[in-house]
Amino acid sequence: MNKNKRFRMEGFFSKYGILVGLLLLIIFFSLKAPRFLSVTNAISLLRQISILSLLSTGLTFCMILNEFDLSIGEMCGLSGVLVTSLLLAGYSQIAAVLLVLFIGVIFGLLNGLIVTKVRISSFIVTLAMSTIILGFNYFITRGKPIYGQFPAGFIALGRGDLLSIPVPVIIALVFLTLGIIFTKKTKYGRYMYAIGGNIIAARYSGIATDRYRILGLVLSQFCAAMGGIVLASRLGSGQPTAGSGYLMNCFATVFLGTAIFGERIPNLLGTFVGVVIMGVLNNGLTMIAVPYYYEYIIQGAVLIGAVALTRIQAKS
């Protein structure tokens, strides 16, 4: 009887341990910094995490397929400087945004085609591609930020509110919701999970595996491009190095997500919880005035911790 109870407790912790951890974090920060638990801070926190959420959503598509995309951080940076440059060059807002998204898709296609047709692992291809993308970035900016007067519509993407909800939060949630429906409710999502689980069995089942792997890599670049646009709007400028830091955090969120709810495989809802955790950490640490260099140490530790957690769960 007693043993049974203990077993259930363990099951509870492996399933919801991360949520409990999030709760403890929130309690801790609220005690240390009273302002932490306010509506204003909650909204600003959501605004902060919206870009990470967009990028992580894209990466989750890839990781469901058991592929990596290490070029999302640089794509985020490139799309930020691109969209600002295009606007300054006189392109209309719609045209600039669509063009940048299109370029994201092109890079995703390129990644996907090389991975599937030349058969190089996505880890290597996207690692190399990230440097190539950075090269394009510096080609445009020569390493200098792009400042200027940008139209109000564009600025609203990152700074605006709709019914007192920040627009970037709405964008991130729309991407997330569509993603969840796509991966969990449609046959295409099922195919992606099947490929990630056992690509050979998937091919024998008549699934066009290459097509979906390309799709995954395209979606991650598309989301990264969107993230870059929102980021540029929020910053009001195109910062060449603004995207680089996102990559590590994206991985942390996806792995946190796999450890949550006992799913053990990447899933978008879990990823979003992971995003919130990273957001709470960053926001809280800033509030209690922990020096910025600790943030890096903590972020790295969280990634390792999240992966360790999935391993421990896999054993039990």
């Binding site: 999970y193 099947a194 689980g197 056992n198 050979i200 069995a201 998937a202 024998y204 053990r264 495989i265």
Partner: peptide, 9 residues
Amino acid sequence: RTQGLNLEM
């Protein structure tokens, strides 16, 4: 196991 099934599904 490797070609016919998705073992974790």
